[in-house]
């Protein structure tokens, strides 16, 4: 290529380097500007990056934890308890929304027109209403309106009362429910909201995956004498899973991130503890770093697990 006669701004090899150098320089200058300000402002406020405050006693209580926690324990224990609370709702939410989503997704292939349209309405209503609105609705309108005492809603093995949700063999002792396992209504509202919301998105993923299986597969299975349920379970779903698993991955990650809205229904998750910690210590930068890092690790873990699952369901080729 004759480059001798060309002016430098038409030079095909030089331009990419110039563009990159320009963008890189601009980003570097911006970052340097921000960091200098950050350091100067933090120094002025006496809040320069430090992690020793994590060992100070927290001084606040958490209503419901799996990790034992009280106000005398250090901040890091509080944040850890919040993280465990987040993980609890995420794990149960993943299971619940997968079940609900699969149910609603397969219902849209039912022979029953009413069931089909019901699944459609569910998806269209839930996806077009903000999750936060749904969460406060579940908490304030449904769970906080539950009756207490003997008027509580009793299902064998489960009692729903305003004082909590009781599992196992709940029994009424002096007007108070007792059971081997109790969760708060805050947790119940958050879990219900997340499961119902994510379930609608998973239903769409499942529907898309099942619709991607050629109709001939259904017909072939039916003509071999499989019942509709058998066809779905042993012929269609294994094939549909190949399209479903990648879609599930992003929905699971959304669920994990959406669990940070717990504060709206009074459940103390990681974000909620972090907010309280910031209010008490003023350590904004450290708290945000902890938050971002924790959610990143949760997202990456889900992604890694789902990628493993994806390799399991993909077509094995010799």
């Amino acid at each position: 290529m004759a480059t001798a006669g060309l002016p430098w701004w038409r030079n095909r090899r030089l331009i990419p380097w110039l563009v990159q150098a320009g963008v890189g320089l601009a980003v570097l200058v911006l970052v340097a500007f921000l960091v200098t300000n950050l350091v100067r402002n933090l120094t002025a406020a006496g809040l320069l990056l430090s992690w020793s405050w994590l060992d100070n006693p927290a001084g606040f209580d958490i209503a419901e934890t799996w990790l034992p926690f009280d106000a005398g324990l250090p901040y890091w224990r509080g944040l850890l308890a919040g993280l465990v609370n987040t993980l609890r709702v995420v794990v149960l939410g993943l299971v619940g929304s997968t079940l609900l989503g699969t149910l609603a997704g397969t219902a849209s292939f039912s022979g029953n027109a009413l069931l089909r349209s019901l699944a459609r309405v569910y998806v269209e209503v839930i996806r077009n209403v903000p999750l936060l609105l749904q969460l406060v609705f579940w908490y304030f309108v449904v769970f906080l309106q539950l009756p207490n005492g003997s008027a509580a809603i009793q299902i064998p093995g489960l009692v729903l009362a305003k004082s909590g949700l009781y599992l196992g063999q709940p029994e009424l002792v002096n007007g108070v429910w007792q059971a081997s396992m109790r969760v708060s209504v805050e947790f119940g509202a958050l879990l219900t909201g997340l499961v119902v919301y994510t379930g609608a998105f998973i239903a769409e993923v499942v529907r898309g995956g099942v619709a991607a299986v050629p109709a001939g597969q259904w017909e072939a299975a039916r003509s071999l004498g499989f019942s509709p349920l058998q066809t779905l379970r042993s012929i269609v779903l294994p094939q549909a899973l190949r399209a479903i698993v990648p879609g599930l991955n992003s929905q699971y990650i959304s669920l994990a991130k959406n669990s940070s809205l717990a504060v709206a229904c009074g459940y103390t998750d990681l974000y909620s503890v972090a907010e309280t910690t910031l209010n008490q210590t003023g350590r904004a930068v450290e708290v945000v770093l902890i938050l971002l890092g924790s959610y990143l690790v949760i997202d990456l873990t889900i992604s890694a697990l789902m990628n493993g699952l994806n390799q399991l369901v993909q077509l094995k080729e010799r």
Binding site: K257, S260, Y271, L292, D299
Partner: peptide, 9 residues
């Protein structure tokens, strides 16, 4: 990778 609420925060 980050929830919106942490970014607003």
């Amino acid at each position: 990778g980050a929830p919106l609420i942490t970014l607003l925060f």
